[in-house]
Design a protein around this nucleic acid. Structure first.
Lengths: 213, 213
DNA sequence: TTTTGTGAAGCGCTTCACAGCT
DNA sequence: AGCTGTGAAGCGCTTCACAAAA
């Protein structure tokens, strides 16, 4: 396989999460089917997309037995294939309830990402909140983002401000935005955006619920 | 079209969000293409899946002109087609930073969903936090969920507790779980689960970013 | 025998192209 | 002319089925 398809990428990310909290015992594709609901065929196909060199190291216990995948080895093979084997810096923009909650996320929840800064227009919040990362007033965003080489932002500002702040982030050099404001952002196509819309997630849940009557 | 495909559902949900913050002017499929990046063909196809009767009412201004879709009418056609035209109750379980942030979401961010209750094992939090909805100690979950007819839960407990609490929610009669704990939940297939894994979203962002070099 | 890895078949989504309406 | 609605073609993902390995 040349490229890993978008659906497969999503499954592999989820699989990584399972593997990280799995033991050392090898997992067969049939067992993974039980944990995920995807067919074992799909799982094996996804894994075979990782590329031949990565596969060898993912097999069995010490040497190549063929019953199952070694969780740790498979996880790192996925990480390599998806080019996630590098730490990246992100910041939190907007330190209201949601933003300050994400300021205090534990490291194990954030994987290979490092929280490098937090921003808010309200200088009070910047001074009062305690945080594992330094906090700055919003007017310093461009400078700090450039200085620290921050690549991504969690956008946690109110809906009314989201578009304006997103544009500032883009000019500051941010390349990926995780948007929590319930607004469809308009940004240049080179900027990656992913939305976390709680209401939309609830709607998807509702749709899935009615199908399982 | 009989059934609306999963990808189309996702696009229609996002489209609803655009329509809600759009004016009264009709939007053409070409304009929507500019806002979303999806081809105008795809958009028209998605909309045609909504069913013939809904379509008539979604056209032009007052009567059927054929330049564009009337935002409000189209939004309600989507709502009807996806069977989202009913209010549903949800609760927040785990009132740490993240959970209490979601307790205080504004109504316009939640659409047709009503926050009916919050739960935490820590009785202190239950008494101290101020919230627009009543808060209860965790041992009352089953009783309150049944009494109020709560259908869904935002699961905001720590990772270690997530699986246990999820199982309690299932036996209490919850049918959909929006899981914020970075853990792959094991629940019966009849229960709908959607995960909000911030680290996975950041990983997806990182993958999208590298493709746009 | 159990389980992986993979070409090939099958199928569902997207794209295309054009008829129909205003 | 411009835009929508839609059958049909095209294509990508999933599923199947089986060879190969342990």
């Amino acid at each position: 396989m040349d490229q890993i398809s978008p659906p497969a990428r999503g499954r592999l990310l989820y699989l990584m999460r399972i593997l990280e909290s799995a033991g050392d015992e090898p997992l067969t594709s049939a067992q993974i089917e039980g944990l995920t609901g995807w067919s074992s065929n799909t799982i094996r196909k996804d894994i075979s997309c990782l590329g031949g060199d990565a596969m060898g190291s993912a097999h069995g216990h010490g040497m190549g037995s063929c019953n199952g995948y070694a969780p740790a080895a498979l996880a790192s093979a996925i990480r390599k294939a998806l080019e996630l084997d590098r730490r990246r810096k992100f910041c939190v923009v907007g330190l209201g309830r949601l933003g300050s909650a994400y300021l205090n996320f534990r490291n194990f929840e954030l994987g290979e990402f490092d929280l490098a800064a937090g921003f808010d227009t309200n200088v009070n919040r910047v001074e009062i909140l305690n945080s594992p990362a330094p906090l700055y007033p919003a007017y310093k965003m461009a400078e700090v983002i450039t200085r620290f080489g921050i690549e991504m932002a969690l956008l946690c500002v109110p809906a009314e401000a989201a578009q304006t702040v997103a544009e500032k982030l883009v000019t500051a050099g941010i390349r990926g935005i995780l948007n929590f404001a319930p607004v469809a952002l308009k940004v240049p196509p080179a900027i990656a955006v992913r939305n976390v819309f709680v209401a939309d997630e609830l709607r998807s849940l509702a749709i899935n619920m009615q199908s399982s009557i």
